[in-house]
Simulated assay, not measured.
Amino acid sequence: MFNRLRRTRLNPLLRDLVRETRLDLDNFIYPLFVVEGEGVRNEIASMPGVFQLSIDEILKECYELKSLGIKSILLFGIPSLKDSVGSDALSDDGIIARTLRAIKAEFGSSLLVITDLCFCEYTDHGHCGILGESSVNNDATLEISAKQALIHAKNGADMIAPSGMMDGIIACLREALDKGGFENLPVMAYSTKFASAYYGPFRDVAQSAPSFGDRKSYQMDSANRFEAIRESLEDEAQGADILMVKPALAFLDIIRDIKERSLLPLCAYNVSGEYALLKAGAKLGVIDYEKVMMETLLGIKRAGADMIISYHAKEVAKIL
């Protein structure tokens, strides 16, 4: 006598009925990259289908996203002028502040706008904050991060997502937002962000490659499991509302580890390199692109992600 597990697989309707994990458009966040100018729509060679967009084109893109049923975006700013402290990120006339105002004037509360809070896109050296003698100066960067958070909040951000992996960043932003009257504005922590080679194409679109060295002194060592868990639990203790693991595919074990240790919602960032690899496989004709894409995203969800930031979101919307 043995169990016949195939009984619930033979009928396709029954397979649907017992399916444990599902992809839902409500759980997807689409990244957008805004640049200066008008009528700008620059496709990125390493990321087919992903564009740098001027503010007017961002609004058009948001209309398309809404028509597809995608309700959440993650906004990155790429200023025309960069300096050593990322001044554009600290100004109400900066690229993110102006884009936030334009999106909110057009869409109000019908679109959830999450802002990436970092300085790598805004600095001439490409690192994630103010430089010290040998690396980014953690505490000096916290000071300007608090200023940046208030700029985002005042101009309409629905949620702030600090990505620089500075120690104490969540507590710092929570204090600044609370004192500024934004105690109800949630913070999604890039709580476990690895110093990963999977970010290569992102640096093409965000123009954020470091001009020297790397980010291993502040982003996570890809080899470290327990430190990765500690990072996320520390951000939870400091007041994060949502945790995140980035990248996703090489770190599904970390997604599961954190999910088993925290009751906070967990986001996974399906990053540029993961997207580009599937696009390259499709171009070469070596994979069934749509099936592999959906299986990949399902795997991220099954590992424990409650929501997924993905460049595939529009394609998923069309399939679902």
Results as ranks from 00 to 15, higher is better:
2 F>L: 14
6 R>F: 09
6 R>C: 05
14 L>E: 13
15 R>W: 05
15 R>V: 04
15 R>F: 04
20 E>K: 15
21 T>Q: 12
22 R>A: 02
23 L>Q: 06
24 D>S: 12
24 D>P: 00
28 F>Y: 14
30 Y>F: 12
32 L>V: 12
33 F>G: 00
34 V>P: 02
39 G>D: 07
40 V>R: 09
42 N>I: 00
42 N>H: 01
46 S>A: 09
48 P>H: 00
49 G>E: 08
51 F>P: 03
56 D>Q: 11
59 L>I: 15
59 L>V: 14
63 Y>Q: 12
69 G>S: 10
71 K>Y: 07
72 S>F: 03
76 F>Y: 14
76 F>D: 00
77 G>L: 12
78 I>D: 03
82 K>P: 04
82 K>E: 13
85 V>G: 07
85 V>T: 09
87 S>I: 06
88 D>K: 15
91 S>R: 14
96 I>Q: 14
99 T>G: 08
105 A>L: 08
105 A>T: 03
113 V>P: 11
114 I>V: 12
116 D>V: 11
121 E>F: 12
122 Y>D: 05
123 T>V: 15
128 C>V: 14
129 G>V: 13
129 G>N: 11
129 G>Q: 08
132 G>N: 13
135 S>C: 13
138 N>R: 11
138 N>F: 08
139 D>E: 15
142 L>P: 03
144 I>C: 08
147 K>V: 05
147 K>L: 15
153 A>F: 06
158 D>Q: 06
167 D>N: 15
169 I>H: 01
170 I>H: 03
171 A>Q: 10
173 L>S: 06
174 R>N: 11
175 E>T: 15
176 A>T: 03
178 D>A: 15
179 K>V: 10
179 K>G: 07
179 K>F: 10
182 F>E: 08
182 F>R: 07
191 S>Y: 01
191 S>L: 11
193 K>I: 01
196 S>A: 13
198 Y>V: 08
200 G>W: 03
201 P>I: 10
202 F>P: 01
202 F>R: 07
203 R>K: 15
206 A>G: 07
206 A>V: 04
209 A>E: 11
210 P>Q: 08
211 S>A: 11
217 S>Q: 05
218 Y>P: 02
219 Q>D: 03
223 A>V: 12
224 N>W: 01
225 R>I: 08
227 E>H: 04
232 S>P: 10
233 L>N: 11
238 Q>T: 06
238 Q>K: 13
242 I>S: 02
245 V>T: 15
245 V>W: 01
247 P>L: 02
249 L>F: 04
252 L>S: 07
253 D>K: 05
254 I>A: 03
255 I>D: 02
256 R>W: 10
258 I>L: 05
262 S>T: 07
263 L>T: 05
264 L>G: 01
269 Y>T: 02
269 Y>H: 01
271 V>G: 01
278 L>Y: 09
279 K>C: 13
282 A>G: 04
283 K>P: 00
284 L>D: 06
287 I>N: 09
289 Y>P: 11
289 Y>D: 12
289 Y>E: 15
290 E>R: 10
292 V>H: 09
292 V>A: 13
294 M>Q: 06
296 T>K: 04
296 T>R: 04
301 K>V: 02
302 R>N: 02
303 A>L: 14
312 H>T: 03
319 I>T: 14
